[in-house]
């Protein structure tokens, strides 16, 4: 069992958003979390990543045998949780390669692996960049600064490729992407999909799932999973919209 979320209640600013959410992810599985706006999709991502503004009021989250909720966001990351941001943050003045090497080495140190010097890391980065068809000129540029929407999302997947997480949560990674960028990002994710890791795709739309085919689809409404199924559930949602699941939540 990679991730087990049980009866999770969480919210922000005293407002409960997740109201008893359950989710189980095993190694090698891709899960899609779908749902209308305000259903709690992004809250789930942020709670799993450990965003300090969100408060968990009850329930448990077990990741790889550990109580995830007891870990700080950076500890979670070093344990192997990765979240690709819906809105990747710009970090002016810090180059992409500098940032990624620091992150890589923190994780390597944590796992008792060898840390890489800038030259060694650059070789690794060049290899990883091919996964998302990223030009090495982006290594020298400040993290996400002046990147287009598509470039930012590709950069998130590049980070995933470098950090090789056990669990990757892709929060609305498809939002704001044109069809070519969507294809590159999705192909990148597919290349990173292994029998050893788990992937959670948080998305409003079905179109990403044409490219990254999920094993399971969970539909959120009102802070709970109201419907679950295989990949065909996504198509059904696409056809019928979210109104019927919203009605089911009430």
């Amino acid at each position: 069992m990679l991730l087990e979320v049980k009866d999770l209640h969480a919210g922000i600013d005293g407002k409960e958003i997740l109201k008893g959410l359950n989710l189980t992810v095993r190694k090698g599985e891709v899960h899609a979390i779908m749902g209308p706006n305000g259903s709690g999709k992004s809250t789930l991502s942020k709670v799993l990543a450990g965003h300090p503004s969100y408060e968990v009021t009850s329930g448990t989250v077990t990741f790889d045998g550990k109580n995830l909720l007891e870990l700080e966001p950076d500890e979670r990351a070093r344990e192997g949780v990765f979240m690709a941001f819906q809105y990747p943050v710009e970090v002016p003045g810090v180059s992409n390669s500098q940032f990624l090497r620091l992150a890589y080495n923190q994780k390597a140190k944590h796992n008792g692996e060898e840390e890489l010097d800038p030259l060694e890391f650059n070789d690794l980065l060049k290899e990883k960049a091919k996964i998302v068809e990223m030009d090495p000129q982006f290594f020298k540029r400040s993290v996400n600064e002046g990147f287009s929407g598509g470039e930012k999302k590709r950069n998130e997947i590049l980070q995933m490729a470098v950090l090789e997480p056990k669990l990757a949560i892709l929060d609305e990674t498809d939002s704001g992407l044109d069809i070519d960028a969507l294809r590159i990002v999705a192909e990148g994710v597919n290349k990173l999909r292994t029998s050893e890791n788990g992937i959670i795709l948080v998305t409003h739309y079905q179109r990403l799932l044409n490219y990254i085919v999920p094993d399971f689809v969970h539909v959120l409404a009102g802070g709970k999973v109201v419907k679950e199924g295989g990949k065909e559930l996504a198509l059904e949602l696409e056809e019928k919209g979210y109104d019927w699941v919203k009605a089911a939540a009430k």
Binding site: E72, P73, D74, R76, A77, F82, P88, V91, V94, Q159
Partner: peptide
């Protein structure tokens, strides 16, 4: 939000803060 972003990439809190401060000056 910048700090959280760096934390989610596994940088410990003091390093993340230093990196952001460094970046601020490096500009």
């Amino acid at each position: 939000e910048e700090l959280f972003y760096l934390l989610t990439r596994g940088l410990p809190d003091p390093l993340a803060r230093n990196l952001l401060t460094y970046g601020f000056a490096e500009e």
